[in-house]
């Protein structure tokens, strides 16, 4: 398999894509067949839960594979080094817009947040612009978009992406005009970062395809278990929790539900893969979209472990400002969604 891919990258990718389409279109049939074969009684709670599970798991995994592959190829065109170069010399606002957009396509791992932060700030990129990047990068990720698209449709995915971008742009801009540089640990500006002369290699297209496959192996092997567990919990809620159960707690009628969802979401740490299937089930039982999306943004966009990592380079007032501004943005977005979808 690996050898074939290396020898005929384009042809084998095309064949795999064809297989993907066939499998994807046959999913409902396969799921119904599996349920029928298991001999479960029609219409029972358990049957519905099982049907949901055997349909959603392969569907989401298939979508994930395709999108992660595509994103892997796109990301091979962007590197953090290149992003830094593009952001150099950019002023506030224009810089915030660009940084948020680049945050979506530049490969990013929260374990690299510190070297990246230092590298950006020391090369003269304004603090606010750096924050726009750091907010957009984890919040708008391919896993979140795939799941939103797969479970709710393209409109919700697009809304999530555009409001996420808006939060990153505006929050970074506010941090920029508040002039919070004095709350960055002083050693950050004292240490002189070196400049590595990593040669920009010319990458050929077949190598980008292999970068796509590498991304699939890396990400899918890491998140599949969360997806399975998340969908299992979702299936349980789907089959057993009564209709409109959540309407009172997370419905539109409860004005306090959005800030409470964000307050609960911030200290929680999960990735998009685990949280979205649960979110879908909550929605189905009467929770409103704005509340649920706010919850999801708070969980994956603001995480406690990442904030603790940032403590090494930022003083507390700046950390509070960062979390506070982003949380406020998420709450506003939650209300807007609830208002629009009423």
């Amino acid at each position: 398999m690996r050898k074939l891919l290396e020898k005929y990258p384009v042809t084998s990718t095309a064949i795999l894509f064809l297989l993907w389409i066939i499998l994807y279109t046959a999913l409902q049939l396969l799921a119904d067949a599996a349920v029928a074969l298991a001999g479960l009684p029609q219409g029972a709670h358990l049957t519905e839960a099982v049907r949901f599970f055997v349909f959603e798991v392969p569907k989401v995994l298939l979508l994930l594979t395709l999108i992660v592959f595509a994103v892997g190829i796109i990301r091979s065109y962007f590197s953090p080094e290149r992003t830094r170069k593009m952001l150099g010399g950019k002023k506030l606002f224009a810089g915030n817009v660009l940084a948020s957009l680049l945050g979506v396509v530049t490969p990013f791992c929260s374990c690299s947040a510190i070297p990246l932060f230092l590298g950006f700030v020391e090369s003269g990129i304004p603090l606010g612009v750096t924050f726009s990047f750091l907010i957009a990068a984890p919040m708008i990720n391919e896993v979140a978009l795939v799941l939103l698209f797969g479970l709710f449709g393209w409109k919700t995915a697009l809304l999530y992406m555009s409001t996420g971008l808006l939060i990153a742009m505006v929050s970074g801009y506010i941090i920029g005009i508040l002039k919070l540089e004095k709350y960055v640990e002083p050693w950050v500006y004292e240490t002189k970062a070196g400049h590595s002369e990593l040669a920009e290699e010319k990458i050929l297209f077949p190598e980008r395809i292999s970068a796509g496959f590498d991304a699939v192996v890396e990400i899918v092997s890491k998140v599949w278990i969360y997806i399975v567990i998340g969908i299992a919990v979702g299936a349980g809620i789907h089959g057993y929790v009564p209709e409109n159960f959540m309407a009172g707690i997370m419905g539109k009628g409860a004005w306090w539900s959005v800030p409470v969802a964000v307050l609960i979401g911030v200290p929680m740490y999960s990735n998009a893969a685990g949280i979205i299937p649960i979110v879908q089930a909550l929605l189905e039982k009467g929770a409103s979209l704005g509340t649920v999306l706010a919850f999801m943004m708070a969980v994956i966009g603001l995480s406690l472990p990442e904030t603790i990592i940032l403590k090494k380079v930022l003083k507390l007032p700046l950390i509070f400002a960062f979390v506070g501004i982003v949380a406020a943005g998420i709450i506003i977005v939650g209300y807007i969604f609830n208002f629009v979808y009423s």
Binding site: E81, S112, L116, G119, F120, K192, G194, L198
Partner: peptide, 26 residues
């Protein structure tokens, strides 16, 4: 050590340095 790491000017970890020359990052 973070301060040591950034002296090499890399933005993503892991970085690989051979005899003081950065060979790869991320």
């Amino acid at each position: 050590d973070l301060q040591e790491i950034i002296k090499y000017g890399i933005l993503t970890t892991p970085g690989l340095v051979v005899d003081g020359v950065v060979k790869s990052a991320g």
